[in-house]
Design a protein around this nucleic acid. Structure first.
Lengths: 197, 197
DNA sequence: GACTCACTAGGACACATGTCCTATGATTGA
DNA sequence: TCAATCATAGGACATGTGTCCTAGTGAGTC
């Protein structure tokens, strides 16, 4: 129909619905309705609901990697790359206000469900963490790179959670500005370091 | 048995289980087992599961109010009150690492469930927001009180989310220290203002 | 002792859900 | 053209769940 295989359509619909409604609260009926296939046909493509979850996490993982690579290519300066990350909050503002952060809310839910896929979901956080850490290393903050990475990550999670609870765009913009200034102050301290990769 | 009415026991068990397992994932069987009563007996005390959720949110709301009042009594200085808030992350470290923030995760879940109680749950956030704002006003930050309150709230949410995902105590302690320094810098800027209530 | 009433136990009921099975149509390759 | 494989539809099945109903218990009261 639209060039995508049924399997791909299922994964993408599941990805969207898991984000909007949560994993547990999304039924096979929901997904099959979204893809317009029968519920029984489902098990030809996936042996279980958990298998779909795995596929969704894998998809998000690959998408994230692609995104990070894009930011690296489009921004010579590590600081600008970090700004790209922070700017997701603006770019995806509407979605975040409606449904929160896709990564944070998924990890949180799987944690409560005591689901075995929790570790895989946490790897999404790890991906950002490693990448941000790498940028801070390039900025010269070798010793504190991981701490700074976690700080930026925590910032984004906090803003996403409250943006969702309060549906407040202005708050998001203001916090992103704050974070921008904080990033500036980091570079000023080490502006002698101009070797980037 | 232990001086509590059955109704109270149900609410407290539900409060704990909703926190640990999530609202939807907690069944009547879970709660009745925790309280040691039959599942059927349940509907004598509550007409529906949603009614239990309402009672749990109400309980949390009252507990929070009590907590905030305690902090006000025990700390003359608004800055110390705010520090008390930030220190929940340390005080409840183990729970937060295991299950995240009770408020944040509940609001997030109810949002995904499109549950009518979401608004009530968000009032828990509002309670902290108003209270923190009040303290910042007392500190002299009249115009930016609400912004600062949201900033501190977002901070706590971000730290709780990552603490849960990474199970990292050191990260929590470090971020709390950072926030402490940030609070110091706020007072230094306005240390001429010494009128507190 | 009879009565009331708060409280409890146990099971029935309808419904949704994840899973599985079988039959049928579509596509492909020799 | 025909057989084999892919893909799909539809329904069966067991299970768990929220909800509801009815019978029973036990303490207190007249």
């Amino acid at each position: 129909m639209n060039g995508k295989t049924t399997r791909e359509q299922i994964i993408e619909a599941a990805d969207r619905l898991f984000y909007q409604q949560g994993f547990e609260h999304t039924s096979f009926a929901d997904i099959s309705q979204a893809v317009n296939i029968s519920r029984g046909n489902f098990y030809y493509h996936f042996k279980s609901k958990d298998e779909i979850l795995d596929a969704v996490i894998k998809l998000r993982f690959l998408r994230t990697q692609t995104l990070l690579n894009t930011w690296e290519k489009h921004n010579q300066h590590p600081l600008e790359r970090i700004r790209s990350f922070v700017n997701i909050l603006i770019m995806n503002q509407n979605k975040i206000i409606s449904y929160g952060c896709p990564v944070g809310t998924l990890c949180s839910e799987l944690n409560k469900l005591n689901h075995s896929a929790e570790a895989d979901a946490n790897k999404l956080f790890d991906l950002f963490r490693q990448w941000l850490g790498q940028q801070f290393i390039l900025l010269g903050h070798v010793d504190t790179a991981d701490e700074l990475a976690l700080h930026v990550l925590a910032f984004s999670q906090g803003v996403a959670t409250l943006a969702n609870a309060f549906s407040d765009e202005i708050f998001v913009q203001r916090e992103v500005n704050n974070m921008g200034k904080w990033l500036d102050s980091l570079t000023i301290e080490t502006q002698h370091n101009h070797i980037f990769v």
